[in-house]
Amino acid sequence: MSVDRPAVEARNVHKAYGEDGVLDGVDLTVAENEVLLLMGPNGTGKTVLLSCLAGATEPSDGSVSVFGTPVSEDGGRSLSLLLQGGASVDTLSGRETAAFYSRLHPDFTDRWRTYVDDLGIDGDLDKRIKYYSEGMKRKLELSLALSVDAPLYLLDEPTAGVDLSMVQSFHRVIRDRVADGGTVVATSHRPVDADLADRVAFVNGGGVLAVDTPEALLDGVPTVVRVVGRAAAGDALSPHVVGEPFYHGDERRGFLRENATVADVREHAGDATVETVEPSYTDAFNYYVHAAADDE
């Protein structure tokens, strides 16, 4: 791994469409051979950021380089980009789509045959894509994106629309590229994808809110308290937590303020169950994206 030459270096990246600013000064460095997961709510510019990193979208300001070369000069030689729906044409079959991209990219390999087999769509390759489910489209597109022999893979929500039983299979094929020395930057808003990451960056349109290893990010989450059993239990949480309480299934959760205790919450919770729990990736997502700003 080279410290001097990161796989990706984005500096002060801005992107606006007319009056609408999508990215507002994003700084990001990705080391070679690491997996960085960009997590953030829908509509906060994760795809636009990934497109800027890939050279598919020109930033309004700032710079992006891949392996030390401005991405605009790289011409797509060092990377492979997966965009949701970006590769599929409804009237083509999966096999025809693969044939198209195999001719398009000089470093396309036949790995896609193994991947579609691993992901369980090898029997559907002759169907037109309009008959594919969203999950099947993701499987095909991920297989094609990872079949390019590139040192950098930029994957936009690779597990979107994929049922949980298949997520590990997706992670496995992505790790296959990392094992061969590849670097991966992926976006997601599914906490389960954090299992894949060496580092997680929580982002919103304003930039990167927090970036660290998953363990360090979990360690940085304040005590998580949950309230179960009363519809109005959120009222008991509100005065004692950072930001707003949030739903986690049927329960309400919040992050205890520094000077608050579980006993303070119980005092106002009536017969509801109040207890602390180990923070999950969902909790970390909610904390860094929605609450951390109020904790400063």
């Binding site: 497109s51 890939a54 598919a56 979208t57 797509g76 980009l81 729906g85 970006g86």
Partner: peptide, 11 residues
């Protein structure tokens, strides 16, 4: 359908 975003990221 956004495929030019994809094409622009390819050589």
């Amino acid at each position: 359908d956004g495929r030019y975003l994809q094409f622009r990221a390819l050589p």
